[in-house]
Every structure is written in C-alpha cells, then in structure tokens.
C-alpha cells in the first residue's frame, strides 16, 4: 500500500503546534487590548469642530480662567459647555468679520446652538460628578491634560474604568491643594514653594480633605 502521507507530514504536524500557539497568543493579546488601543479610545486624536476653537489661544494667549466658560464645574456634575452668548461677550467686539466665526454669529442670530463634537464622553451608565472632584483637589489637568496647550481638543486619558479606579484606589497619587485645581502647570510643592514629593503631599491632603473615594459598584453605576 502506498504511503498515505508525504514525508514532510511529521515536520508539518510539529510546526503546526507552534503556529497554533503563536496565532492563539497573538489573537488573545489583540483581543484583550482592544479597549486600550488608540483606535477605540481616541486618546491623542484631535477632532474637527464646527468652529476650530483653540483652548491654547484662549487660555495661554488671552488668559481666560477655565470657569469663565465652564461655569458650573464647582457646583454641578456637569462642567457646562458655554452657550454662544459667552463667545459673543468678546466676539461681538473683536473679530466681528472673521469668516471662521460665522457659525458663532449665525448661532447667535438664529438661536440654534452649535453642535460641538464631544471629546470626553462617558457611557450613559456611568454617573460622574465634576464638583466633588474639584472640591477634593483633583486638578482639571489631572484628567484632561494640559488643555492650555491644545489648539484643538483631544483626550489624554482613556476614560476606561481601570483608569477611574487607578485614582479611586490610590487618590494620594493624584490630589493637589484646592487652590491649585485650575492651575495647568502645577507641580507638588509646599507653602513656601519648595518642591515636595507627591507621595508626602498627597497623603497629607487625603487626610486634610477627608478623601475616601468609594469603589462600590453603585458609586458610579447608580
């Protein structure tokens, strides 16, 4: 009887073990990291907006405070996207003819709000409150990055649940003095301006501010 399989079959069978391991390993690695990739998280991806609003220009150049537009960040869960009237406080006087600002003027004329593209969008099953974080000494920059350096808005953090828990489990690594919350370039320092370690300062602040972040499911999933 003729041989059923060619000579190379044994080598083929042995190699196939390695191939299967590599394919399964690679597949699992990709699958498990899907939610961490830039493709899915949009981290570092600037989005086109109806008006190319630059935080860099308005914060670093003009010197506006975060709260000039995001008015409710200290009192409410929502930081607030400013109405077009806020823009018009200045732009009724300056750059009144700029074609780039035409959507602003049109919105002001017609009363139809501008449809900004939302960058930081938590899922609807997550409850998040800005005011408590601001009051407990979490800086804007800790979550949103150096917004004062962004010509267009992008995310610097994934907003994945593991990222939330990173801080809820070890807040001392991230807290800062309340007065420094809106400071975009803060580094850990004591009252006299000497640099200190975050570990030392954070532990003290956690005690001073009575920071006790819950990691119960129902804290965020209400």
């Amino acid at each position: 009887m003729a041989q059923l399989f060619p000579r190379g079959s044994n080598a083929f069978a042995r190699i196939s073990i390695v191939v299967v391991l590599v394919v399964v390993g690679t597949g699992l690695t990709i699958l498990l990291n899907t939610n961490r990739l830039h493709y899915t998280t949009d981290v570092q991806v600037a989005r086109k907006q109806p008006v190319p609003f630059s935080h860099k220009h308005h914060v670093t150049g003009v010197g506006l405070d975060c709260r000039y537009c995001h008015t409710s960040v200290e009192e409410s869960s929502f930081a607030n996207i400013p109405p077009v009237e806020t823009c018009m406080t200045c732009h009724s006087q300056i750059w009144t003819e700029s074609p780039l600002l035409e959507p602003i003027r049109e919105s002001y004329r017609t009363g139809n709000p501008i449809e900004w593209v939302r960058i930081h969008d938590l899922p609807d099953f997550v409850y998040f409150n800005h005011s408590i974080h601001v009051h407990k000494g979490i800086g804007c920059q800790t979550c949103h990055g150096q917004v004062d350096q962004m010509p267009l808005m992008w995310k610097v953090n994934t907003l994945n649940m593991e990222w939330c828990l990173e801080c809820h489990r070890e807040p001392e690594k991230f807290v800062r003095p309340r007065e420094e919350v809106f400071n975009m370039a803060w580094t850990p320092m004591d009252e006299r301006g000497h640099a200190v370690s975050q570990a030392l300062l954070g532990a003290q602040l956690v005690q001073d501010y009575d920071i006790n972040p819950s990691t119960d499911c129902s804290t965020c999933h209400r």
Binding site: L32, T158, M161, E162, L165
Partner: peptide, 8 residues
C-alpha cells in the same frame, strides 16, 4: 477572570 479594562 482576565485583565480587562474595567480593572474588575
């Protein structure tokens, strides 16, 4: 149990 992005 696997190392998921929810950290749970």
């Amino acid at each position: 149990p696997y190392p998921n992005t929810m950290s749970v």
